[in-house]
């Protein structure tokens, strides 16, 4: 046998060139565009922002290294700190309202939809519509509806005898943030609904049948079987809500309230603060270094949230094979 192999080896050297197996060029070709675009326009800017936050701009346009000086300014300088803590606090309130309104509502709707009622598909499709719309549009639609000028909201509430409850919520310091949050809930509830709905659907029917045979009622099945199985999805929903707070919330507030977070900064959040700092506004000129500092703070705050989620929450939420 060895002879045969040796002869064959000799022959394969002389044999006409054949295509070879192996090689990694194609792997590089497949990966290169994604890695390049992503690195240049997503990762590099992020790192560059972190770097910029360590410098201070000079009147002549140059920049000097000041270490964590900008962060000290942001956190401790009286003018900056009040805005920063206010914006962060408002962000947390926003998050809190989403967690207690949007996600339970999404869970409720998903649970109802998963019972496969008639017209379930239609409900699902329609409830998802606001999610598709630009926040700009959503913002104006609600501004018009809630506006005392047009009076649609007031008129409808009066029709059911609740007219006395009406107030121009978006314009009042006490209620503006809540109103904006609820508009955002209205817009985005479709996302948790869909994610949870999909998770509920992925629970095998046999498991539910088994529970039914074991004598569990519909409600008990939900609490004792379905809910534990979709906990990981609820975890994902929570972290998505958290991240969304620091990004998409800007668009809504910017389009409804503008960049100052009126009235009196009651709807000012990290996103608007960053935008203002970066680009300036009437009373203040833009400052890319402070803007980068605010952005970096947002990055760290998001990182803290994600870390808590990954280390604390996700670990404890067992993922079950289904």
């Amino acid at each position: 046998m060895t002879e045969i192999v040796e002869q064959a080896i000799g022959r394969s050297r002389t044999a006409r060139r054949r295509r070879k197996t192996g090689g990694i060029t194609h792997i590089a070709v497949f990966l290169a565009p994604t890695v390049l675009i992503y690195s240049i326009f997503s990762i590099y800017p992020l790192i560059e922002s972190l770097r910029l936050s360590l410098f201070d701009g000079q009147p002549d346009g140059s920049a000097v290294w000041i270490g964590l000086g900008n962060y000290a300014t942001l956190l401790f300088d009286a003018n900056w700190a009040v805005r920063f803590w206010n914006a962060l606090w408002n962000n947390l309130i926003l998050f809190f309202i989403h967690m207690i309104v949007q996600n339970p509502l999404g869970l409720l709707l998903a649970a109802l939809l998963s019972l496969a009622p008639r017209f379930g598909g239609t409900y699902r499709t329609l409830i998802f519509v606001p999610t598709l719309l630009s926040v700009v549009i959503v913002g104006f639609v609600w501004e018009l509806i809630l506006s005392p000028l047009w009076g649609v909201a007031e008129g409808m509430m009066s029709a059911v005898g609740l007219g006395w409850l009406y107030a121009p919520w978006l314009g009042l310091e006490d209620s503006a943030l809540t109103a904006v949050s609820l508009i955002s809930v209205w817009q985005y509830v479709g996302i948790p609904m869909m994610l949870i709905y999909a998770a509920l659907l992925s629970i095998p029917d046999e498991l539910l049948d088994a529970a039914r045979v074991d004598g569990l009622s519909g409600f008990a099945i939900f609490w004792k079987i379905k809910l534990p199985l979709i906990l990981p999805t609820l975890g994902i929903v929570a972290i998505l809500t958290y991240i969304g707070n620091f990004t998409s919330a800007f668009d809504l507030i910017y389009s409804i309230q503008g960049v100052l977070g009126p009235p009196d900064y009651s709807t000012d959040i990290m996103g608007t603060l960053m935008f203002r700092t970066f680009f300036g506004q009437q009373t203040q000129i833009g400052d890319i270094h402070m803007g980068a500092t605010v952005a970096s703070m947002m990055f760290f705050i998001i990182l803290i949230g994600v870390t808590i989620y990954l280390l604390g929450v996700q670990r404890r939420l067992t993922r079950y094979e289904m």
Binding site: F41, P45, T247, G271, A295, M298, I302
Partner: peptide, 24 residues
């Protein structure tokens, strides 16, 4: 490693790099 690197972007919004993106 690459998988994790690429998926990082889901967690970190690209907007945070706006300052540098504009400069770029």
């Amino acid at each position: 490693l690459l998988g994790v690197y690429l998926i990082l972007g889901i967690m970190v919004p690209i907007r945070l790099g706006t300052v540098a993106i504009l400069q770029l």
